[in-house]
């Protein structure tokens, strides 16, 4: 695996032709059938969800949709979900629980959308509820960070039994730019922030946040989307098989402990 800095990886994941779930889902799954709507307010194009088979096992897929062009991005709001997107995700997670399907989440977002309507419809509540409910969802949950995992908007699809990251993916409490802008009042110190924040997959393995790094082709996923999809697929098939063998009380206990133990303090 390559030894790149956070800044170099940031450049790789910002490649315009970096593959997205629109590339990966057809390559990894069969019979993908998309389901829309949160049954309360509407349908959010920032989150695509449905059922499919993974190596002939039925699974539920919930994915944040980065657009590959302006048109796709208009539909997916640049992958910044509204509350109804998170509520659609939760609806399909409950459905997966009922029918004993493992849930596979793909995380790829700069963060949840910040807007008047999002506030009015309870962006905070929607994220909070997903986090709490996924913690006790009685079926295996696997999350894969594809590019950028930004703040609570990412975490709402990342409370899981195993978190995997593509080799160049980054996962952080806020974007490096935001970090620099708030803590140093200077967004131009973005690169310095990226290095300081410890946001690469390797860093996150150290913190116990990331459980598995999925390799990308040398130079980045955009150089060989099919190979990257194969690598993700191989990991997912293995993880689904392993986690499906664990009895539910143990699974949920391990899931809680995975997050419960993260924290550093003195007493």
């Amino acid at each position: 695996m390559s030894k790149l800095s956070a800044t170099q990886r940031l450049e790789i994941i910002r490649q315009k032709n970096r593959p997205t779930v629109n590339d990966y889902i057809p390559a990894i799954f069969n019979h993908f059938t998309e389901f829309h709507g949160d049954r309360h307010f509407g349908d959010d194009g920032a989150i695509m969800a449905g059922i499919a088979t993974l190596n002939s096992t039925p699974v539920t897929v919930i994915a944040q949709v980065k657009g590959r062009n302006l048109d796709e991005n208009k539909k997916s709001n640049f992958s910044m979900p509204h509350p109804e997107g998170y509520r659609k995700a939760l609806r399909l997670a409950y459905q997966a629980e009922k029918f004993h399907r493992p849930v596979i989440c793909f995380v790829d977002t700069p963060g949840a959308f910040c807007g008047v309507e999002a506030e009015k419809r309870g962006q905070g509540e929607a994220i909070a509820k997903n986090i709490a409910e996924f913690m006790t969802l009685k079926t295996p949950v696997i999350s894969v960070v594809l590019g950028e995992g930004g703040s609570g908007g990412a975490l709402a699809l990342a409370v899981c039994d195993e978190l995997a990251m593509l080799e160049n993916a980054l996962y952080s409490v806020i974007s490096p730019r935001g970090f620099a802008s708030i803590l140093w009042k200077d967004p131009s110190r973005e690169k310095e922030a990226a290095e300081l924040m410890k946001i690469t997959a390797e860093d996150l393995m150290q913190f116990g946040v990331c459980d598995k790094i999925i390799p990308e082709p040398v130079g980045g996923a955009h150089l060989d989307a099919a190979q990257t999809a194969d690598n993700i697929s191989e990991y997912l098939i293995n993880a689904v098989e392993r986690l499906s063998a664990v009895d539910i009380p143990t699974l949920l206990d391990n899931r809680y402990k995975k997050f419960r133990k993260i924290g550093m303090f003195n007493e």
């Binding site: 909070a128 913690m135 609570g152 409370v159 409490v173 993260i262």
Partner: peptide, 14 residues
Amino acid sequence: EGIISLMQMAKTAG
């Protein structure tokens, strides 16, 4: 506190 602060959301909600 970097990513650890984000994880406190999951810890507390759990």
